[in-house]
């Protein structure tokens, strides 16, 4: 049995080369940044995710401001958004030291504009306000983010739907079809297919979706009683035997 964090600590898709970089002191070597950046773009194309490797990139940027590449940072943050409810997004922003805005007008740094938008997206996810997330996501304000970054990030919307699915799965046993649709920004046959893929069942007549039971959506009242073990009484019993 693997722990809840093992895939986050060492994703099964991580190669040995990356593992050595992430766990060794070579992670501080600025010349390795391209290896890690290539790995990030591999994650972007394949839908894989490796938070610790991405943090290693941000660490190198933190120490070597000349390596800084805003496009990479935006991509890392997009990937981190999909890890909610894990705090990956905050772990990434923690490493983003305030930097001097690039004065070069030909190559403006997109991050100062995009960071508040990304943080807003993150907060909506964190507050489980999924319909609001999708409304904001489709708004004009996000056009540049969508067209320049998200379009490249394979499976981004699907991963966000997974975030919603995790929250719904824990909270509901049954949920209205239309409501679920607003959470995952799907409707009609697409939504039905998505529900089927989740392994949830749809009752068309009542338009409700049933979610199989899991440890989080099964509840029962428990009275926790204390449980005395013999070992705890060892001294008392031993003493009684001696006094005789």
């Amino acid at each position: 049995m693997t722990s809840a964090t093992s895939e986050w600590l060492t994703p099964s898709t991580r190669t040995e080369l990356i593992e050595n970089l992430v766990s060794g002191v070579d992670r501080y070597n600025p010349s390795n940044v391209s290896i890690l950046e290539d790995y990030l773009y591999h994650q972007i194309r394949s839908g894989e995710y490796d938070c610790l490797a991405n943090l290693a990139i941000l660490k190198l940027y933190q120490f070597n401001s000349d390596l800084y590449n805003p496009d990479v940072v935006v991509n890392i943050l997009l990937k981190a958004l999909t890890a909610e409810p894990f705090p990956d997004y905050n772990l990434c922003t923690s490493l983003l030291d305030d930097r001097l805005v690039n004065m070069n007008p030909d190559e403006p740094d997109p991050l100062p504009v995009l960071l508040p938008i990304l943080t807003n997206l993150y907060n909506l996810l964190h507050q489980c306000r999924f319909p609001a997330f999708w409304t904001f996501y489709h708004s004009d304000e996000l056009e540049s983010l969508r067209e320049n970054y998200i379009v490249e990030c394979v499976g981004f919307e699907e991963a966000i739907r997974e975030v919603a699915a995790r929250a719904v799965k824990a909270t509901f046993t049954r949920i209205g079809l239309d409501r679920l649709g607003t959470y995952v920004d799907l409707s009609g046959p697409e939504l039905e297919m998505w529900i089927e893929k989740q392994g949830w069942s749809l009752d068309i007549s009542t338009r409700t979706v049933s979610i199989p039971s899991n440890p989080d959506n099964e509840i029962e009242s428990v009275v926790i009683r204390e449980n005395v073990k013999l070992a705890q009484l060892q001294k008392v019993i031993a003493h009684a035997a001696q006094v005789k």
């Binding site: 909270t171 509901f172 046993t173 049954r174 949920i175 209205g176 409700t208 959506n217 099964e218 509840i219 029962e220 009242s221 428990v222």
Partner: peptide, 10 residues
């Protein structure tokens, strides 16, 4: 846990 609109509490 929420069953459609009904919240059950334990």
């Amino acid at each position: 846990v929420i069953d459609e609109n009904m919240i059950h509490i334990a």
